[in-house]
Design a protein around this nucleic acid. Structure first.
Lengths: 330, 330
DNA sequence: TTGTAAGCGTTATCAT
DNA sequence: ATGATAACGCTTACAA
């Protein structure tokens, strides 16, 4: 049986409402009694009952996160960041790995203060029928969503990368990424590349667009091997993800090529780079900290009843470092 | 503002206590009224308030899962399985990605019915000071835990693999896995290998124990490449994880070797194999479904107040298939 | 400055 | 078969 404020009240010889005030650090209670009560609460290992509080306050200081994929690294780091920020604002995050509908129903029963959905597939955002008393924020592809959405402009990110490479003289710029996929996030990147290269479809640049079968290190390795052995004119590679890039770098070093002298590389990336990579990478994307900040702020303002913006698109930045150099005019 | 049973009562022209009974499908209320009430609840989009119920019932039908690592594939699949089983028993799982102490505190405030900890590091289980009214079950290394623990016998798993290979005539049996690691789960596997090979330490078999820098596909690939180019006598490989095995298979095929004719392979594995792998693998381990079943059952019986066993160790099985063949006597 | 009491949405125990 | 009511643990006017 757990400790309640009544238990504390008995021990302290005060009424339980005084205890309640003391614990919430109300100015209506004297310092000495306050500290005495605090101490007793501590000793008894008191934990406030969320159910009781949220019943009367109609507020649970909890944010529900719909997390249908517990496996990807990038969103993992993102949710960790968000969690940290919200914690500082004394909110707790709770994740559900159930399907969208059922997760939302659960969170409604729990009366969480807001729901954050990590978008997985196109269908998610289209479910207009979903009922929720609790306000919802959606993180994923913006287009056509029925929920207020925060999105990262992946298309522009890759475009920036290609443009930068063109500006410093590159022409044979390859793209390595997932192409034949249902994942709209990946498709956006490919589209960005094609637009920046001024072509319609991937088949217009058969020697420069190398589709992968996944986003793992090994997929990048295979793609780069195939690219570099079949096409000797490539001077730059744009990579669709950090893991792919790691594989690409392995392939490059196996072929005794050098970055950036023989090849320039720009990697799409949100997450902070692990330092054990061989070279300081030029990256393009929205830093995870900025995404986390933006999502957290929006969540908080939604909770405070602010009229929520229909959609927020975060614009990417290019972080130019060693892995990228101007092409020597021949 | 969300719909309550009082709202439903008004619409139905009955008292709210009748509504409560009807919704819980009590035999104390007539069919017609019951269906009428159900229908209205449906129409109004009623969701029961967990806070209110758990306050009076002292039961939330919720299990809190401490999930410090939101990134690994194997535990992801496990928690998904557990979630499914518990759902069938009308329990909801909620994950917290906070640190152990703070996650447990949160779940206590939420009055969840039980807490499941996914063990990450050695320290976790040693924290005897942790206060929790809610019963806790720990999944991870059993040894020295202060919580009731469910563990998988990884050491025996690898031993079984080595023994089987020996029985069918192999002698030069290599092990590829993570060695210099803090992760006790990985260390157990290496220990199992060393014990089965009757040696003290890894350095006693320098040509057969190949440590990796991680558990990714590429790590397996690199290790196998190095193993097979430096040691021509190897006839069998035991792999510490499924992803490593995928890399090992790549390396083998690049060297134009054939499984199982040139090399037998046994892979440690819990998760069901993805069908797109080239060969049906001989695996050893406890199937994830059995782990999930065992954890769920234990959780449920803990909740029902059963005296909980101090620790449960799940024993591995060997699944022999194509990737493993007897050695030809020379 | 402290105590009293009402009420949050639900279940459960009594009456009716 | 249905309704009235107390209780769960807490916050918050309001009274003292």
């Amino acid at each position: 049986m757990s400790v309640t404020i009544k238990d504390i009240a008995k021990h302290a010889g005060v009424s339980y409402s005084t205890v309640s005030k003391a614990l919430r650090d109300s100015p209506l209670v004297k310092k000495p009694t306050k500290t005495k009560i605090m101490k007793i609460a501590e000793e008894l290992g008191y934990q406030p009952n969320v159910a009781a509080r949220s019943l009367v306050q109609k507020k649970s200081y909890t944010i529900g996160v719909v997390w249908p994929s517990v496996e990807r690294v990038a969103p993992s780091i993102l949710i960790t960041n968000i969690n940290d920020i919200l914690e500082r604002h004394s909110y707790t995050t709770l994740l559900s790995i159930n399907k969208l509908e059922s997760a939302i129903a659960t969170f409604n029963r729990f009366q969480v203060d807001a729901i954050l959905i990590f978008g997985e597939n196109e269908d998610d955002k289209k479910r207009s029928k979903i009922q929720s008393t609790v306000p919802i924020l959606y993180y994923g592809i913006q287009e056509g969503s029925y929920f207020p959405t925060i999105d990262v402009n992946r298309r522009l990110a890759i475009k920036l990368a290609v443009k930068h490479l063109k500006e410093i003289g590159h022409q044979e710029i390859a793209f390595i990424g997932e192409l034949q996929t249902q994942d709209p996030l990946q498709r956006e990147k490919a589209t960005g590349y094609l637009e920046a290269m001024n072509v319609e479809k991937a088949s217009d640049l058969p020697n420069l667009v190398i589709p992968t079968n996944g986003l793992e290190v090994y997929d990048g390795y295979l793609a780069a091997k195939s690219l570099l052995t079949n096409n000797k004119h490539v001077t730059a590679i744009v990579s669709g993800s950090y893991d792919l890039t790691r594989g690409i770098l392995r392939a490059i070093s196996e072929l005794s090529l050098h970055v950036p002298n023989d090849l320039s590389i720009i990697s799409y990336d949100n997450i902070p780079q692990s330092p054990n990579i061989e070279i300081q990478l030029t990256t393009v994307g929205v830093p995870v900290t900025r995404i986390a900040q933006s999502i957290s702020e929006t969540l908080l303002s939604i909770i405070e009843g602010q009229e929520l913006p229909e959609s927020i698109i975060l614009e990417p930045e290019l972080f130019i470092t060693d892995s990228c150099s101007p092409i020597r005019q021949q």
